[in-house]
């Protein structure tokens, strides 16, 4: 096999392969379970899934929550980076921005509860000041049916990550290119379109995909701060997985494999988009 002819290449790939093997094995085992019933191939688990109102509600809710929280995190994080790019080159500022990344997600969910629940800090302050009439106003920010609590947690955790990903690009952005556009009579919009946008697009898209995939399948935050109904897809799968008699396990596997397939498809679409664009840029030149 050609792949293994170069021994040093094999050695180099080994840690990566070992790292990937376990999740891959998990994914494949899950897929096999979701397509079999006592050893035989079947579509039944998937047709059952498609017929379940609970699953459909959960899917729509998960996609919506993941999309909204990721978009918000990316847009705010991007705005933040480009506005404060020069300040962010200083280490203390940068460290402050990244503080939320030090805490695990579930801790951050608890912080949202501590601040925004009916007995939270905000309720205490604002009702005390008379700005909000009743603490019941705060019931919409955690364990709510719109997923506001989940979205808040992920936006909050996501922004520093977006800054982390985008900051090096802004730090390395060539000011000369902007000057060039200006010399040729381009305004702010032209500068953005010709210099900034092509520079940040690949990383932004990548960041978006990472955050989106992570939020879509997250368990602990929705389990803490989500509503009874609709549930995020992982919460539902967890319940199916541990239901009595383990009868609904195949459904859990089917749901999780379906979501994995969705994520893989979205990622492939994203990367092929970038690839097409790169080819186009190579052919046409970066600045038309």
């Amino acid at each position: 096999m050609k792949l293994f002819r170069n021994k040093s290449l094999v050695l180099l790939l080994l840690p990566g392969a070992a790292f990937l093997l376990l999740p891959m094995y998990g994914l494949v085992t899950g897929a096999v379970e979701s397509f079999t019933d006592s050893g035989r191939f079947t579509w039944n688990h998937y047709t059952e899934l498609a017929g379940s109102d609970r699953f459909r509600a959960s899917l729509v809710f998960s996609l919506r929550t993941a999309l909204v929280s990721t978009l918000l995190a990316v847009v705010i994080g991007w705005w933040f980076t480009r506005t404060f790019a020069s300040a962010l080159t200083k280490l203390p500022v940068r460290v402050t921005v990244w503080i939320p990344m030090l805490f695990p997600h579930f801790v951050w969910a608890y912080i949202v509860i501590l601040i925004l629940a009916e007995t939270g800090f905000a309720a205490y302050l604002l009702t005390g000041a008379g700005w909000v009439e009743s603490p019941a106003f705060f019931s919409r920010f955690s364990n709510d049916q719109q997923g506001v609590g989940i979205i808040l947690t992920y936006v909050w955790k996501g922004i520093p990550f977006v800054v982390l990903m985008l900051l090096p690009l802004y730090a390395a952005m060539k000011q000369e290119l902007n000057d060039l556009v200006a010399t040729l009579g381009g305004g702010r919009w032209q500068k953005f379109k010709m210099v900034e946008w092509p520079l940040i697009l690949p990383t932004t898209l990548e960041t978006f995909l990472i955050l989106f995939a992570f939020t879509l399948t997250a368990y602990e935050v929705p389990a803490l701060i989500g509503a009874t109904y609709p549930e995020m897809i992982s919460v539902l799968s967890y319940q199916w997985f541990y239901s009595s008699g383990w009868e609904e396990r195949s459904l859990a596997f089917a749901a999780m494999f379906f979501i994995s397939a969705v994520i893989i498809l979205i990622s492939l679409a994203g990367y092929s988009l970038l690839k097409r664009r790169n080819k186009f840029i190579k052919r046409e030149g970066q600045l038309k």
Binding site: S139, N143, D144, A223, L224, G226, A227, T228
Partner: peptide
């Protein structure tokens, strides 16, 4: 609590 829109998990 919460008009039953959410039950503790």
């Amino acid at each position: 609590w919460r008009e039953g829109s959410h039950y503790p998990n």
